[in-house]
Design a protein around this nucleic acid. Structure first.
Length: 580
RNA sequence: GGUCCCGUAGUGCAGUCUGGAGUGCACGCCGCCCUGUCAAGGCGGAGGUCGCGAGUUCAAAUCUCGUCGGGACCGCCA
């Protein structure tokens, strides 16, 4: 080794020993002809070296320093620094690499730098304490999860990156085949198909820290490629999967934060929608939806009399915070989420007790006003936002408004883990075929209590499907799968997929189930998202070494780029002229 | 495909509403000074296609239109 210690390691106990450190010049401070301080930095920290001022080292030079550890005295001790009680003196400095000045500050100030500049020089950005911490958090997460899975007898299996294209789900990245020009592989959106085949193959418990790829627009919590802990188990029910999946998540959280979270709360999808207007509710704050429908059973107010579901949220002491402009903004937002409108009521005290300041106050009867105030437990100065629509719209719109008004940044504590269970098997109806659309995917096992309603009332059938939610972010989802070909056929029929079409689209997947498929189910959750939240970041790019910006163009490598005609020729590909 | 926000020195900003010479601040950089600093200090200096292109105007960083780049969100992500 070129070094005897790392730059953040030395303490008083090392005094008098001769050491060698290697790292980058963090900062140099000159003090006249024969004195300068050079702070040498690596991922572990910084150590001050006392050198002669004729040593010409500058920011980010890579150096090797050999010297004696000496104790600092009096007010030269720096209590802000773990190594602040010692320094290296005298020192021999060897320059291993010179460096141009970094394109942005190496300290916290770079957090404000345009992210494109950080990404263009990611190799420099990665040297900063924040990125060092984040990548190490991520590594801890991976290690904890892997050992939690292995500890529960899960078998790690790598599944192919080159697989057939399947029309369902997200847009895929395609890979042209050289040996069969005109044909394409697809990169996996998830190892879903293979992991179920592993169950048929008797692996019993499978896991993989799997790279998944989806060619959909990027967001703060979405990249083209992302990592999932993917798992599948045989001979299990929902509880078995949730319990097994939890271990890795909680272990990872404990490893990073030092605190083991309480076991994960559970809530049905229906309750989540009723109470929070979201299938990924953020439980760090209240402001739950309040049911008002019965109050308006025979109302004169047209906007309410025709609505199937009327609910509200109460913003405590929000009346003054939300002026006309902000309320108009919220109304626009409510409309953009599908509501016909939004009613706001500011609670104030009048002659006969509490009353409403609102454009629609005159349409409400005294009984209705009293009932609203009683039901919401409103007090003077509160703001009440009411949505009246069909049940799903009412809930979803209020859920969005609730988040908009009350939700803290995802990375802020406390951490609230939640299992949302019993998702509906079908969501909505396909506009062209008139058939129900699968809520999760077509292979979810219906809830056993609802099996007899499959044909008679499909929209009310619950699936044995579940999501894991952390602070309002969906970490992952899973289900118990259909292992019985007869039940699978029933579901396909409901979806309007006949046997021939099922064979064509899913044949290679369904055929194996004829050969003895065990009952099985599984789960997958996003490691980028978990790592980001545990690292205190609001954007998964901060826990990815080389992420892509929203355009998908990598400013570091300039990918994607054009390729030589010869390569295309070999693949049997001819490009169309650019669209105008 | 859509909505909103941003683009001025290596970096972060002010200036833009209300047009008047690239007017300015902080950090960084270069040089000099400085023997106890630690996001050192002092003095001096260099550094600009105001994203790009049109238009309006005597005059555009500033107003208008277009375009490119970035971000958040909606759609999309079974």
């Amino acid at each position: 080794m070129m070094r005897t210690h790392r730059c953040g390691e030395l303490r008083l106990e090392h005094v008098d020993s001769q050491v060698t450190l290697t790292g980058w010049v963090n900062r140099r401070r000159e003090h006249g002809e024969h004195l300068a301080f050079v702070d040498i930095r690596d991922h572990s920290g910084v150590t001050q070296c006392v050198v002669d001022n004729d040593v010409d080292v500058r920011a980010e030079y890579v150096i090797k320093v050999t010297g004696t550890v000496v104790a600092r005295t009096g007010d030269t001790i720096n209590s802000d620094l773990p190594t602040g009680e010692i320094e290296l003196k005298p020192c021999e400095v060897e320059i291993l690499s010179i460096a141009e000045p970094p394109p942005f500050p190496m300290d916290q100030r770079a957090d404000d730098v345009d992210e494109m500049i950080r990404l263009k020089h990611r190799y420099v950005d990665l040297r900063r304490a924040r990125m060092q911490k984040n990548l190490r958090v991520r590594s801890q997460v991976n290690a904890s999860i892997r050992s939690a899975m292995v500890g529960q007898d899960f078998v790690e299996v790598e599944t192919p990156m080159l697989m057939p294209s399947t029309p369902e789900g997200a847009r895929e990245f395609l890979v042209p085949s050289r040996q069969r020009p005109g044909n394409f592989y697809a990169l996996p959106q998830s190892p879903q198909l293979y992991k179920q085949l592993l169950m048929v193959g008797g692996l019993d418990r499978y896991f993989q820290i799997a790279r998944c790829l989806r060619d959909e627009d990027l967001r703060a919590d979405r990249q083209y490629e992302f990592m999932q802990l993917d798992m599948e188990m045989s001979f299990v029910d929902v509880d078995d999967v949730l319990s097994a999946a939890e271990v890795g998540v909680l272990d990872a959280a404990e490893a990073v934060t030092g605190v083991r979270p309480d076991s994960v709360e559970r809530m049905t999808w229906h309750d989540a929608m009723e109470r929070f207007g979201s299938d990924k509710p953020d439980l760090r704050f209240g402001m739950e939806l309040i049911e008002l429908t019965p109050i308006f059973a025979s109302t004169e107010f047209k906007a309410f009399s025709t609505a199937g579901s009327i609910k509200c949220i109460r913003v405590e002491q929000g009346a003054d915070q939300y002026g006309r402009n902000k309320l108009d903004g919220l109304t626009d937002e409510a409309k953009s989420f599908g509501a016909k409108g939004m009613v706001w009521l500011k609670v104030r005290s009048g002659e006969a007790g509490l009353e409403f300041d609102s454009p629609v106050a005159k349409f409400l009867s005294a009984d209705e006003i009293a009932a609203i105030i009683a039901t919401t437990e409103a007090t003077e100065g509160d703001l009440i936002l009411v949505i009246a629509d069909e049940w799903a719209t009412t809930c979803e719109v209020l859920g969005e408004l609730r988040n908009r008004i009350g939700r803290p940044p995802v990375s802020e504590g406390p951490y609230k883990y939640l299992w949302v269970t019993d998702f509906p098997l079908f969501v909505g109806v396909d506009a062209t075929t008139g058939r129900p659309k699968p809520g999760h995917h077509a292979f979810c096992q219906p809830h056993p209590d609802d099996l007899d309603k499959l044909e008679s009332d499909p929209m009310s059938v619950r699936a044995q499907a579940y999501d894991l939610v952390l602070n309002g972010w969906e970490l992952g989802s899973g289900s118990i799968r259909i292992h019985d070909p007869k039940l699978q056929r029933r579901v396909f029929e409901l979806l309007g997929i006949d046997e021939e079409e099922a064979d064509k689209r899913f044949g290679f997947f369904l055929e194996p189930f004829k050969y003895g498929a065990p009952p099985h189910g599984g789960f997958a959750y996003g490691i980028d998202r978990l790592a980001a939240i545990l690292a205190g970041e609001e954007n998964i790019r901060e826990v990815i070494a080389f992420p892509k910006p929203q355009s998908g163009m990598d400013p570091l490598t300039n990918a994607p780029g054009a390729v030589d005609d010869g390569l295309l020729e070999e693949l049997g590909i001819r490009l169309l002229p650019p669209a105008t």
